[in-house]
Computed example of a mutant assay.
Amino acid sequence: MTKLLGVIGDPVAHSLSPVIHNHWIREAGFDATYEAIQIAAEDFEPALAALRQKSCAGFNVTLPHKLSAFAACRNLTDAAQKIGAVNTLTPIDETEWAGHNTDAQGFLDSLEWGGVDLQARPKTLVIGAGGAARAVVYALVSKGIYPTILNRTEARAKVLSADLTGSKSVYGSIDALAQIIDTLDLVINTVSAGHSGNILELPKGQNRFFVDISYGKAASKQLDFATQHGWQTLDGLGMLIAQAALSFETWFDEYPPTDEILKRCRKLVETLT
Results as ranks from 00 to 15, higher is better:
V61H: 01
N198V: 09
V7A: 00
H229P: 07
I8E: 00
E42Y: 06
I127F: 02
W24Q: 01
T77N: 09
V7N: 02
G84I: 03
S68L: 15
D163H: 10
G131C: 11
L51S: 06
S161M: 08
Q206D: 15
P11C: 04
S192P: 09
T2S: 13
F70A: 10
E94Y: 10
F30M: 01
K54I: 08
V170E: 09
G130D: 04
N189K: 07
L262Q: 12
E94M: 11
N198I: 05
A157L: 08
T33F: 02
E270H: 10
E35D: 11
S142K: 11
K267T: 14
V7P: 03
L186P: 07
H195K: 15
D10K: 11
E249H: 14
L111C: 07
Q228E: 15
E254H: 15
Q81W: 12
L67H: 09
Y215I: 04
G99F: 05
S220K: 13
P11Y: 01
V12Q: 01
G144Y: 07
L150F: 12
L262D: 07
A133K: 04
Y146K: 06
L268K: 11
L200Y: 15
A32P: 02
H21S: 02
D212P: 08
A69C: 08
H14I: 10
T77R: 11
A157W: 04
A47I: 00
K221L: 12
A41K: 14
T273P: 00
E45H: 06
A178P: 05
L237F: 13
N189I: 08
V211G: 09
F59W: 10
A139T: 06
A157I: 07
A50E: 14
R74W: 09
L268A: 14
Y146S: 10
L202K: 05
A69L: 05
Y34L: 02
G131P: 02
I127A: 00
K123C: 07
P91R: 06
G216N: 05
W97A: 03
F252M: 14
L272V: 14
E94N: 13
Y34P: 03
W113R: 13
P203M: 07
